[in-house]
Amino acid sequence: MRLAFILSEIGSGLRRNLSMVVSVVLVTFVSLSFIGGAALLQMQINQMKDYWYDKVQVSIFLCADNSSSQTCAAGAVTDEQRADIESKMESPAVAQYVESYQHETQDEALTHFQDQFENSPIVDTVTADQLPESFRVRLVDPEKYEVINELFSSMTGVDVVVDQRELLEQIFSIMNVASLVSLGIAGVMIVCAVLLVATTIRLSAFSRRRETGIMRLVGASKLVIQLPFVLEGVIAAVIGAMLASGALWAVARFFIEGQLAQQYPGTAFIASSQVWVIAPVLVILGALLAGISSMLTLRRYLKV
């Protein structure tokens, strides 16, 4: 009985305050979308980091038939050149910087590539001879990349020395900035959402002061009086959070999976299913924000 009563109170409150409720829904929707967006970006960064970091820090790409750098003028790397590079790697001058190194043949590069992009259609079109042979070097101190670069980049048979960490870090830092900006916007929007929930609840409490006054007089408990208001805010925020989750899923599904992943098959993108990790967090966050702000508002504006 009491539950049915509270539910009907919530229903009438939501109807009576429809425009405010809609604005709460929209503001939480936008703010939580930004939070979710930031989270997705972080997931994307982690996805790339997981794969790349700790695997390779410096790649020494060897000349292939179609390499164009000066050191490759003689065409593809020969066995002799390869042995030279390897012996230099073993030499005490270099070995002190190198923790481990690994030679990757073109076939291995292909397997590697196929692992990395198993979801991408490009896998089927790439063949081993399109991928360069390389030495993958893990440094004792990643900062000493310059030493390796100087020593190897001028050797014949070496196409280019790449510190992949540096490349990745640039991308990551851009993405980090983007996610920080997104969080900043989300922060402002959340302040808006909290204040709007407070105003909505205040308005709702004001428009129902007759009911609450009578409820107080006939001895309704604090819970029965306040719960409909709190739940009103929470329901609006949860709807907003669900919309935000839906929007993020749509972006991941149709933009990232549907477009970016097609256009840039060389990059590992997050899958739309990963949005379902974020969605519950957004819903809980929205509910908490609305609940706390409406409870604080009620404490001031609804005498019990």
Partner: peptide
């Protein structure tokens, strides 16, 4: 201090509903 959107029965019943 009656509730304008409830009929006589509803107004009287309200006092019982809110205390469960």
């Amino acid at each position: 201090r009656l509730l304008p959107n409830k009929d006589v029965f509803g107004n009287v019943a309200f006092a019982m509903q809110v205390i469960g």
